[in-house]
Amino acid sequence: MTRERPKLGWGDLRGARVGVWGFGREGEANLRKLRSLGVEPVLVDDSPTAGEAGDEHVLATADGGLDALLRCEVVVKTPGISSYSPQADRLRQAGVVLAGGLGLWLQEADRERVVCVTGTKGKSTTSSILGHLLTGLGYRAMVGGNIGAAPYDPALAGDCDYWVIEVSSYQATDLASSPPVTAVTSLHPDHLPWHGGVEQYYRDKLSACSQPGAELTVANGDSELIRARAGLLAPRVEWVLETDEASATWLDPLGLPGRHNRRNALIARRVLRALGVEGADDDEALCAAAAG
């Protein structure tokens, strides 16, 4: 099942009737971003919690909230709300554009300086390793997305040299573009009720690697599930095995246990090379960056 992905950026929402659907941590970041653009959105949550939203007035989806969203032009939903839900279908049928904050940001970002990391397991570790190595090599790096911070949140304003974005399967369905370099760490059945089935989950998860702009995916070559779905990745794929660089010691200071984490670190290095990061080919420099 495929749905058109809106090619909108945050800047396109100026002057529009906008709803924020889902008012947790990411919903609050969405609200701050919209207000920085001069947009005052309607706020809706499936289960508003008293006190959680502070002074904000949040409608319950089932108690007037969905009707309010139907009057919007664009609804920015939180990733936890399924793109395949009956309410989401009803909004689309009414001509409302459904978008996600990460997808809106990526449309406007300098994608040459962004890497998206996805995978059922290992994406947080690999994203953290990437951010740690970039910082150790002297770069300003933000690690965000599913791992925590929203890269578009005005509360976190500041320029970076690189953005390392962990992408969940939920967030992947909101992306209408990919950066040139992406990574995928593993693939196993997960989140099936949200996606509606295992193959749809695989397609949604890997779609973060194959939207317009994608050039290279650095992928776990030990995963038969990923290898069997190489056609869902970027036009070029570099496979990384846990036995690669058998004599390498630069990753020892990371102190990560397990062969799977060794592969995650090797994926991180291959990503740095693909980004053209100075020091990525220097074992001594990487060892110093890995320390701490």
Results as ranks from 00 to 15, higher is better:
residue 140 R to I: 00
residue 95 G to R: 13
residue 18 V to A: 02
residue 128 S to A: 15
residue 168 S to T: 00
residue 241 L to H: 14
residue 16 A to K: 15
residue 200 Q to L: 13
residue 181 V to R: 01
residue 74 V to C: 11
residue 9 G to F: 11
residue 273 R to C: 13
residue 220 N to R: 13
residue 147 I to L: 15
residue 288 A to M: 05
residue 85 S to P: 03
residue 163 W to S: 12
residue 8 L to D: 06
residue 223 S to H: 05
residue 259 R to S: 14
residue 194 W to Q: 03
residue 280 A to M: 11
residue 37 L to T: 09
residue 85 S to R: 07
residue 28 E to W: 06
residue 252 D to I: 01
residue 57 H to F: 07
residue 65 G to Q: 00
residue 182 T to P: 12
residue 223 S to Y: 02
residue 254 L to M: 10
residue 139 Y to S: 03
residue 10 W to D: 07
residue 31 L to S: 08
residue 184 V to F: 03
residue 141 A to G: 05
residue 71 R to M: 05
residue 149 A to R: 14
residue 119 G to Q: 00
residue 42 V to Y: 03
residue 100 G to P: 06
residue 196 G to S: 09
residue 93 Q to N: 09
residue 150 A to H: 10
residue 83 S to A: 15
residue 105 W to K: 05
residue 35 R to Y: 01
residue 277 V to M: 11
residue 178 S to H: 02
residue 18 V to C: 03
residue 20 V to A: 08
residue 234 A to T: 08
residue 62 A to R: 15
residue 256 L to V: 01
residue 89 D to K: 13
residue 9 G to V: 07
residue 233 L to I: 12
residue 88 A to E: 02
residue 245 E to Q: 14
residue 154 P to G: 13
residue 169 S to D: 03
residue 98 L to W: 02
residue 231 G to P: 02
residue 55 D to C: 08
residue 98 L to K: 08
residue 245 E to V: 03
residue 72 C to V: 08
residue 41 P to N: 10
residue 104 L to H: 07
residue 64 G to R: 12
residue 157 A to G: 05
residue 140 R to E: 13
residue 259 R to T: 09
residue 20 V to Y: 07
residue 10 W to N: 01
residue 128 S to F: 06
residue 239 W to G: 04
residue 93 Q to M: 03
residue 239 W to Y: 10
residue 137 L to C: 04
residue 62 A to C: 09
residue 229 R to E: 08
residue 126 T to P: 02
residue 70 L to D: 03
residue 259 R to Y: 02
residue 103 G to W: 07
residue 250 W to S: 09
residue 176 A to W: 05
residue 164 V to H: 00
residue 89 D to H: 15
residue 247 S to V: 09
residue 49 T to D: 12
residue 69 L to M: 08
